[in-house]
């Protein structure tokens, strides 16, 4: 299986602090992966690097069949190449309706002039309605997204991610602040998505990770500590040391 994303030997330093230290990471094109690790392990910085927000000091980030170098691309280009990201806090455009939020995320030309003349075709509206159905917001299409509950905002954001039709989803703590029922729904959404694309989930909550039933990567101090099934890594002495303290 060829890798969709290949990160190798990446390091970042902030004012002397090594946030990422010689990190290497690969993921295939239809795979679910959970990343766990204590605070400050570099989980969010890892996402920042892949999405182009932070430029590493050294290392390589290669993408897709054509092995494009992501480090040379802007955030927008990376997103257009097929990497979608969900932030830790739900970030939706609260001033705009759910429909507008989803429309904006739909895969269509992104350049200013085409967007200026773009008007929704019937298939776009159908797609938006289908997505809304999938994330359970079919009744709320006309509502302003700022009025949604916290969990609904998380789903809306996942819906926006799906609307982008990315080949890789980076999801940062999707279950934070959700009720148990909402978590289950989220798990289903992510599992469904992982059938056709790569999904990377960063999560603290072990229960949630267990429910995802996927390979787990443990980060510590900016590099990979262990990799394998959840049971495998939780049995690893080093991981236990890191989580419980020495």
């Amino acid at each position: 299986m060829s890798n969709l994303l290949e990160v190798s030997g990446v390091s970042v330093t902030f004012d002397g602090f090594r946030a990422i230290n010689n990190l290497s990471f690969q993921i295939g094109s239809a795979e679910m992966r959970a990343i766990i690790g204590p605070n400050g392990a570099g989980k969010t910085t890892f996402m920042d690097i892949v999405t182009g927000k932070t430029r590493p000091d050294s290392g390589k980030v290669l993408w897709g069949e054509k092995t494009q170098n992501l480090l040379k691309m802007s955030e927008a280009r990376i997103a257009q190449a097929g990497i979608g990201r969900k932030f830790q806090r739900p970030t939706v455009f609260e001033d705009q309706s759910v429909r507008d939020n989803l429309m904006m995320a739909l895969q269509n030309p992104r350049a200013p002039v085409p967007v200026l003349f773009w008007r929704p075709a019937r298939k776009d509206s159908t797609r938006v309605e289908a997505l809304a159905e999938q994330i359970g917001l079919a009744d709320a299409l006309a509502r302003k997204s700022g009025e949604l509950s916290h969990g609904q905002k998380q789903w809306l954001e996942i819906g926006m991610l799906l609307a982008q039709e990315p080949r890789l989803l980076l999801v940062d703590e999707p279950a934070a602040g959700m009720t148990l029922a909402e978590r289950e729904h989220t798990t289903d959404l992510l599992k469904e998505a992982a059938k056709s694309r790569a999904v990377v989930v960063v999560e603290h909550d072990m229960e949630f990770v267990r429910r995802l039933e996927c390979k787990v990567t443990v980060l510590h101090e900016g590099s990979v500590l262990a990799e394998g099934s959840l049971d495998h890594v939780t049995a690893n002495q080093e991981v236990i040391d890191v989580y419980l303290g020495r």
Binding site: S74, A76, T91, D95, M104, V115, L116, R119
Partner: peptide, 21 residues
């Protein structure tokens, strides 16, 4: 239309718009 949506999105959360591509 969508252009207005994007522009208002930029006003409210520039980084998010960027990650939408």
């Amino acid at each position: 239309g969508k252009f207005g949506s994007v522009v208002r999105g930029i006003r409210d959360d520039e980084a998010r718009v960027r990650f939408l591509g």
